[in-house]
Design a protein around this nucleic acid. Structure first.
Lengths: 221, 221
DNA sequence: CAATGCCTTACAGATATCTGTAAGGCATTG
DNA sequence: CAATGCCTTACAGATATCTGTAAGGCATTG
């Protein structure tokens, strides 16, 4: 089914259990694990250059930072880099993320082959996902409902700029000056007011505090 | 070192890797794993009643909820319940939590014996923690610095009430009425203003939006 | 029981937030 | 090139937020 599998996962427990499960449940010639995105990507590239490309990447989304600075700091960055050098690589994402909007974008943007949500059955699901991919299908953890991810409101650069500064306690006047200083437009207070009011309607918030609270909880800012 | 060990961990990968590691690295007569706090607690109680008490509990802090309703919904609830029936039980917490305030309170309030933070070495750390506990010591993951947890500002019931309602977009006037309705005191707008102003100073926030944003990010509300 | 400190409350004033209206700019369309 | 829609901007007015002051209540202390 799969000859060479690469695993990118920073937690030792998850990493070890994935390796062990693959070894015992599936017949794979070569399994290699990495704890950092950069190392995983280098290994992927090297294999590709030596005509020994991996045919499956299993990766987490979030990787803990530490004193060693990394170029690729997240699973998304790794997937993006991997897709560029090896478009036909099959990819399984194995993460705690439950936000259907974010998961949907992984399928839409990067055409991942499976999403396995970490949980009480995630190792079993991982094996299942690999069988599905082997049969040419995709796999998605059953508790994730991508239908709720429809009609997503896209926060553009200006929205994010305003929201992040609101969350840092800046007034709209201060945000206005900051926008001007960075030559971003529009930058009138009216425009900021309008943006924020539209976001109130979009996210069902009554004021800035509730808006910022909701967006932080949804992981959008 | 340990005769009977109970593991409470909802993620299959973590659960399996802990069991495997303990089996291969340490000489333990009986290892039992559970995926739900309620089940773990029942097993603990039953063993105690049969004079076959566990001498070590390894537990996660956060447990995913699903359709099966649980009495104990978190590791803290499990630890609290366990301590009440078996005060001398040794406890290792193995979690992603990095907030030193919360970790400190586990040592202070529940006298846990070790805190292992999930990460790139957490299985090795877990083994190390067990040796330390065997020698009568405690263990704490080196990346956690409990000194930063000193002089913590305690949010009381009223603070939390105000903050939660602010995060839901209520105005101070609305919060005031709500306090009156629930017969909570103080409930003047002035008192609410004062509370919030003190929290600004305490958490270094310039206004309500920043305050709520900070506290949500710190996991306090 | 007077003095003290701390909390609550009321009130005032300066800003900030939020909504709504109206005018002008710009790109698109027929 | 007139008409249209959409965005930006300015402005106004109603509220809400935030700070500061002052008075009163209450428990504690000597």
């Amino acid at each position: 089914m799969f000859q060479k599998v690469l695993i990118a996962e920073d937690f030792q427990g998850d990493n070890k259990s994935i390796v062990d499960t693959l070894k015992s449940e599936l017949n794979i010639a070569e399994i290699q694990e990495e704890y950092y995105c950069d190392k995983a990507f280098n290994r992927l590239k090297a294999a590709l250059n030596n005509q020994e490309a991996y045919d499956l990447l299993i990766t987490d989304l979030s990787f803990k930072e530490n004193h060693i600075p990394q170029k690729l700091t997240s699973g998304v960055a790794l997937i993006d880099a991997a897709r560029k050098v090896q478009p036909d690589l099959r990819i399984i994402v194995n993460s705690m993320e439950e936000n259907s909007v974010k998961i949907k974008s992984l399928f839409d943007t990067y055409h991942i082959n499976a999403y396995v949500c970490k949980g009480r059955q995630s190792l079993d699901e991982l094996v299942k996902a690999m069988h599905e991919i082997g049969n040419g299908n995709t796999y998605l953890s059953p508790q994730i409902d991508l239908n709720t991810a429809k009609n997503v409101f896209e926060l553009d650069e200006l929205d994010l700029f305003i929201l992040k500064n609101l969350a840092e306690g800046l007034s709209k006047k201060e945000i206005r000056y900051k926008l001007k200083k960075e030559d971003l437009r529009p930058n009138s207070e009216s425009a900021i007011d309008k943006r924020v009011s539209n976001l109130f309607a979009e996210f069902g918030a009554k004021n800035s505090t509730e808006l910022v609270a909701k967006l932080i909880r949804e992981g959008l800012i």
